[in-house]
Design a protein around this nucleic acid. Structure first.
Lengths: 142, 142
DNA sequence: GCGGCTTTCTTGACTCGTTCCAGTAAACGG
DNA sequence: CCGTTTACTGGAACGAGTCAAGAAAGCCGC
């Protein structure tokens, strides 16, 4: 192929100077397969894949991968932590008030929406996170 | 005075069809006095005012006032719930990654920033919540 | 003002997501 | 292949928030 192939999970880990372990590979794949999955769902997916894995290992891996920039963590009010593999593109999320469903959204304003606040109170701002609240199609129709 | 005076806490409660109790008045005043206060700080302030008050009462009041629109609840990732009395004006917040300090921000885009998502995935969106992440003046200088 | 209905507060137990800790296992560089 | 470093296991602990039953207090009509 002419363009570089998508990096494998192993390449992603090595590229981030992280040791390659079964648990980390399984977590990475689980989050890829279930975007916006909560920790519990990741634990289930990893155990379905590997058998016995401590919940602590999954928490550690999720944190390590998030700090390394391989995962992004989101946590809308009233929800537990959720993880996704789309990182670095400054996209945002819609959350259903009724069922908690989450979907990706690219902000209409462009790549860095609303990044300039009118009055930053002296803060040095490096990221603007937008959460849209509303009702998902399934909850709207019922 | 020619223009209407700011409503008293009691008037706010009555206007929202809520019973007026000492606990509710104290919570309202506590949040007014300490914008972005977390639940724990509200409990402390209320107890300093009234003496013995159960934490459950404060949780109940905070929820009731939030549902009535007298308070707004915010909960940045990695923080506990915080409350403020500025409601209905669609303002946003800057949060310090280092110390967790919160400040109000009016979005540069205007009154309803970023409310139109480029692709809403079929969701009916009613609110856009923006959180700016950065470093506060105190943490920047140290 | 007074009784009665309804909402709210108190008390205390409890859930659940997450973190801490000590010991064991596994990755990786030499 | 061996030693060092880092990760994983298992279990206990923590803390914000919730649940439930009974007591107290607000509010409405008289």
């Amino acid at each position: 192929m002419s363009h570089p192939a998508a990096p494998t999970p192993e390449q992603l880990l090595r590229g981030a100077a992280l040791r390659v372990t079964r648990q980390r590979l399984a977590v990475l794949q689980a989050v890829q397969a279930h975007p916006h999955a909560e920790t519990d769902a990741v634990i289930d997916a990893v155990r379905a894949d590997l058998g016995v894995v401590s919940h602590q290992a999954v928490y550690d891996v999720l944190r390590a991968l998030t700090e390394a920039g391989l995962l992004r963590r989101i946590q809308p009010s009233g929800s537990v932590a959720r993880y996704e593999t789309r990182t670095g593109d400054n996209h945002h999320h819609v959350v259903c008030r009724s069922c908690g469903a989450v979907a990706d959204v690219d902000c209409a304003t462009g790549a860095a929406p609303c990044l300039t606040a009118s009055d930053d109170s002296g803060f040095v701002i490096d990221e603007a996170e937008v959460i849209y609240w509303g009702t998902c199609p399934a909850c709207t129709s019922s």
